[in-house]
Design a protein around this nucleic acid. Structure first.
Lengths: 192, 192
DNA sequence: GTTTCAAACCTAAAGGCTTTAGGTTTTGCG
DNA sequence: CGCAAAACCTAAAGCCTTTAGGTTTGAAAC
């Protein structure tokens, strides 16, 4: 057996793939080592411990998501951009359920301060600028947007909408419409 | 040492309390048994296995939340009711972080079909009736409401708003305003 | 070509958690 | 009292994480 010649990044990527395939909860160092054809203890050369591995997956997902968002909203604005932004999140959650679940975990201080996290925040702000909100309101709008999109995907993933008609698809459309409307007519009077 | 005389419900309640105090991730059968002054294996008389325990906490939280919501929205309507509804969720998430985290996990089919789950759904619908939406739109509004509230609390808990000015409080107000506005002027034209 | 050194990998072992199997003590009730 | 069911226990297997320390590998340095 040739040696695997792992690196930190390779281990984290493999962990993310495993999480996507087998579910985030099954993400064990032992299972990961098995997949990589390596002894469990060997992983500790590349990753401090299990929680560091999870944090690594979190940051990897953040970076990938940032890239996807950048591509999606490029050249669009207003409702188009909003739809693309939200759709990107949804696609990512579906295509990479394990990675997406990693994003739902509490972010460490390091992750919050990381470059990918900043990039996602910046892209969100950039998208919202198309709505011409008062500068001071941008943060609140960002938070509402994040809450709604993430919340919807979380409920969808957790089966809260489970198998009930009418199709979740329509609800998703309504949510986007609602966000678009809200951003378009954001209350300005509260600046007294 | 007198014997503990446990029951299924007592074990689940103790588990929920432990989760609130020590964090949901620390919720281990061994730790729970330690707290109850009992051997770990003894818990298996009251709970099928660990996942059943988690499901039990989930359903307990659902029932408690339903009770709290019922009290909060009683006698209120419109924006008042909305504020009370959302505030109840937020209070619950803060006062019982462990129980609340249990609510975020994928619901089993049994949990989705459970009485408490139905009660929460019914109460949400009841609250939304104050907004006089078209009957067919109630489901979508319910989902949007749930997504926004849960999403906000999740991001808040996960540190996505971490320590950043301006205060999260204002963002919360804005989100409620937005929901109120959206429900008040829900698009009706889509019924062609 | 050999030395050498760091990185990659391994074996061994400790300690925690879950779960099963089967035995013992309470407890309440006929 | 006597006895069955429920509550609890001990023992043990199996998996997981993590630490400690040893071996291989590959490439740069002599």
């Amino acid at each position: 057996m040739p040696r695997a010649n792992l690196t930190s990044a390779a281990v984290i990527t493999a962990a993310a793939d495993l999480a996507d395939r087998s579910g985030f909860d099954e993400l064990a160092l032992s299972a990961l080592a098995r997949h990589l054809g390596v002894q469990t203890a060997s992983l500790y050369s590349h990753v401090r411990d299990r929680s560091a591995l999870l944090e690594g997956v979190h940051q990897l997902a953040l970076a990938e998501l940032a890239d996807a968002i950048a591509v999606a909203i490029g050249g669009r604005s207003g409702r188009d951009a909003l739809t693309a932004f939200a759709g990107t999140h949804r696609d990512y959650a579906r295509r990479c359920p394990g990675r997406w679940t990693a994003l739902q975990r509490p972010a460490t201080a390091a992750t919050v301060a990381s470059e990918p996290a900043g990039r996602v925040a910046a892209l969100t702000l950039a998208m919202l600028r198309g709505y011409e909100l008062p500068e001071a309101e941008l943060v609140h709008a960002t938070r509402l947007l994040g809450a709604t999109v993430n919340g919807f995907l979380a409920l969808e993933a957790n089966g809260a909408f489970a198998h009930r008609e009418p199709a979740t698809e329509v609800s998703w459309q309504r949510a986007l419409e609602a966000l678009d409307t809200v951003f378009r007519s954001w209350p300005t009077e509260g600046k007294s």
